[in-house]
Computed example of a mutant assay.
Amino acid sequence: MSDQELVNLLLDPAKRQNAFELLIKKYQQKIYWHIRKMVIDHDDADDVIQETFIKVWQGLNNFRGDAQLYTWIYRIATNESLNFLQKKRRQNHVPIENEDSTDLLNTLESSISHGYISGDEIQVKLQKALLQLPDKQRLVFNMKYYEDMKYEDIAEITGTSVGALKASYHLAVKKIEEFLNNES
């Protein structure tokens, strides 16, 4: 089912509940992994995805259709992920401007040791390198590298210009390369 067909069903009050279930089926896994790459922990990702779909449901009446459905959902998921990370830092008394990734690194290490995350050595190093990036830079890298999104779609999701996104992605790649070279 196309997003436009789904939107038409969502706008019909008699079909909204069923259409929302179809929307969840269509996007749940993609959105879960988008969030999981940001928050690292499975339980945290489950909490954030639940909040995301609650916000999607609550915002259906305000969805104007000037954005694509999937970019609108990704934007909500992105904002929920960033808000979750800020809240977690405040709870752990980590200054937001510090961009400290120790907690996320510990979560990654725990996930690896418990077998929740698998991968060869280079994948683990890449994940550690990603956690050294500021949240928004990591977000841009994940969407471009892992999800192969177009810069225009990322711009719509993040509310950032294409030029700024390209610069952010380039800086992220440089930082990752530097981290990986220092790890060798």
Rank of each mutant, 00 (worst) to 15 (best):
Q4I: 15
V7F: 10
N8P: 08
N8K: 15
L9Q: 13
L10D: 05
D12P: 06
D12R: 12
A14E: 13
R16T: 08
R16N: 10
R16Q: 11
Q17H: 13
A19H: 07
F20K: 00
L22W: 07
L23Y: 12
Q28H: 11
Q29W: 08
I35M: 01
I40N: 02
I40V: 12
H42W: 07
D46Q: 02
I49P: 00
F53K: 02
G59M: 01
N62Y: 10
G65N: 04
Y70N: 10
Y70H: 10
T71C: 06
W72L: 01
W72Y: 07
I73F: 02
I76P: 00
I76K: 00
A77Y: 00
T78I: 04
S81R: 05
N83E: 05
H93K: 15
V94A: 06
P95V: 15
E99N: 09
S101R: 08
D103W: 14
H114I: 04
I117C: 08
S118E: 12
G119F: 07
V124N: 08
K125V: 06
L126H: 07
K128I: 11
K128C: 12
P134I: 05
K136Q: 15
L139I: 04
N142S: 13
Y145G: 02
E147Q: 06
E152F: 09
I154A: 09
E156K: 13
G163A: 15
G163N: 14
G163Q: 10
H170C: 14
L171I: 10
K174C: 11
E177G: 13
F179S: 08
F179R: 07
